[in-house]
Design a protein around this nucleic acid. Structure first.
Lengths: 104, 104
DNA sequence: GCAAACTATAGCACTAAGTGCTATATATAG
DNA sequence: CTATATATAGCACTTAGTGCTATAGTTTGC
């Protein structure tokens, strides 16, 4: 389940900060990354993206502004002409699960 | 101040949901967008990006994975070879202000 | 001590995302 | 009726994002 994995991630990040403060660790590296179990960021279909926006009850223009992207880009996402990747896809997943309020 | 603006945004989004449920409004459009006062997403210098990561105490590889981007991209951000824009820049600002835990 | 794996910087080259602009159709506000 | 806003559509350009390889320094484990 995702909640559990996220809890692990948060715990590790918190622990890293604590250990760093104690001078026992400088950072979380790839070595302990497998324990983090990052939630998978799957591809989003055009209609899924549109649903994320409409469920927030904002227009394409407002949605674009809140995500710091262009109107043209949001339109192409929803029509399937371009597909969001990387950080954009991650941000969309965050909005999907946590609501548009997180970008405030 | 940003907190106040964000409060307005959250209030409008919440209100929109409420009005929609009541059948009085379908979505927030550009017409009332000026009232939203979206917090500006300024460009981030290479060293600022590096600080955001190091303050989270994670390696470039882990940081990249958490943002759903590539190691190569994070490296180029920090060296100034490429500059994050759009959704990527927004996500970095979110991490800067709210911590890496939000991507969990 | 030595080898294997990880971190970070660097450079090359390609693809496609992101962007801007224009046009059209529909709907809404004044 | 006129202005403005929403949404879809298409064209063309720039550059972010990605992958790969190499080098050097650091850490882990045998």
């Amino acid at each position: 389940m995702n909640r559990k994995k996220s809890d692990i991630l948060e715990a590790v990040l918190e622990t890293a900060k604590g250990l760093h403060a104690a001078g026992a660790m400088d950072q979380v590296t790839l070595r302990e990354f497998d324990r983090l179990c990052v939630p998978p960021v799957t591809a989003l279909k055009p209609l899924e993206i549109k649903r994320i926006r409409t469920q927030s009850h904002v227009s394409q223009a407002v949605f674009a502004a809140l995500l710091n992207t262009s109107l043209s880009t949001v339109q192409k996402w929803e029509i399937g002409q371009k597909r969001p990747t990387g950080a954009a896809l991650k941000l969309l997943h965050l909005v999907k699960k946590q609501g548009l309020e997180i970008v405030a």
